[in-house]
């Protein structure tokens, strides 16, 4: 508890370094929280489980009706939209501005198609449904419309990488801050260290309070970071709730979980410990009784 005493000995300095650590760490913690939110959004979109079924070109009208009724009775499917090949061709003509070309086809090259919404959410069940429908003889091809979600997923991956890089950089910053704070402490405590060695203090005995101090300071910085991110998300959440209320949407921002918070504290504490250790190792040997 020598460490605690030293933390309180220079309250302004301690407060300063703790805030620096806290602010530095609230950045990646905040971005992490934002990513979690985006991920939740992405999850909602990718769980709008749409599939496109393209029938074989030579499918007769009766067969199409048969497929439709089978789809209607399928337990895993909620909505069905039929796009006849005529509609498809017309739309192709309109959307591309190549109506003349579309008309000039002797035979319609486009297939009849269904756009269906599956009732199930998890992607493995969508894959199962896709595989099942693919086996139907009238069906040429089943496409899962999740490309957009996949793109978002890739962006999130990029975001996660950014958080990781930021964390690494700021971790180095925390190491440096702790290193320097401990270095100054060692210098101001030079006499005490020297006397202690003279009366038989082991290096471990001298090192220990510095290590505890580093860990304590790191943990306090981590706590400040938690405070900042929690306050930040709550503030944004309030505003968001008002906005969402207008649209009648009930939407809760992601808050850092207990696990997240504990790992952040543990992480910043161990970084503080490591910084203190490096500092003690590089400075303590210089102080020997003369």
């Amino acid at each position: 508890m020598l460490a605690l005493k030293r933390l309180l000995m220079s309250p302004l300095g301690s407060l300063l370094s703790i805030s620096v650590i806290g602010i530095a760490f609230s950045l990646p913690a905040g971005i992490y929280g934002m990513l979690e939110n985006l991920e939740a959004v992405a999850g909602q979109f990718s769980t709008t489980p749409q599939l496109s079924l393209f029938l074989k070109l030579n499918t007769s009208e009766e067969a199409v009706m048969d497929v439709k009724s089978r789809l209607e009775h399928h337990a895993g499917i909620t909505t069905i939209q039929f796009i006849s090949k005529e509609n498809a061709l017309q739309e192709f003509g309109q959307s591309t501005g190549l109506a003349d070309i579309a008309k000039s086809f002797e035979q319609n090259p486009l297939p009849d198609a269904f756009v269906i919404t599956a009732s199930s959410v998890p992607s493995y069940q969508l894959d199962e449904l896709q595989a099942e429908l693919q086996k139907w003889p009238e069906i040429e091809h089943v496409q899962l419309d999740s490309a957009w979600a996949k793109r978002l997923e890739a962006m999130l991956g990029l975001g996660r990488l950014a958080v990781l890089m930021l964390s690494v950089l700021l971790s180095v910053a925390l190491l440096v801050v702790t290193f320097n704070v401990i270095r100054l402490q060692i210098l101001t405590m030079r006499d005490e260290i020297e006397v202690s060695k003279l009366v038989g203090a082991t290096n471990g005995f001298i090192r220990r309070p510095f290590l505890y101090f580093g860990a304590l300071q790191g943990a306090a910085g981590g706590a400040v970071a938690l405070l900042i991110t929690t306050l930040g998300t709550n503030l944004i959440d309030e505003q968001l709730k008002n906005l969402m209320h207008l649209y009648d949407i009930n939407w809760q921002l992601y808050q850092l979980s207990l696990g997240d918070s504990l790992s952040l504290l543990l992480f910043s504490a161990s970084l503080g410990w490591a910084g203190a250790w490096l500092s003690v190792e590089s400075h303590l040997w210089q102080i020997e009784p003369r």
Binding site: E194, V195, L198, V199, G200, T202, P289
Partner: peptide, 23 residues
């Protein structure tokens, strides 16, 4: 060097520059 602290615990040392801790 690891054994030196334990040697010193059996010695009472009074040195010239007294190294009193004034805090």
């Amino acid at each position: 060097s690891g054994a030196i602290p334990f040697l010193r615990r059996n010695l009472g040392l009074v040195f010239q520059d007294q190294k009193i801790l004034f805090d």
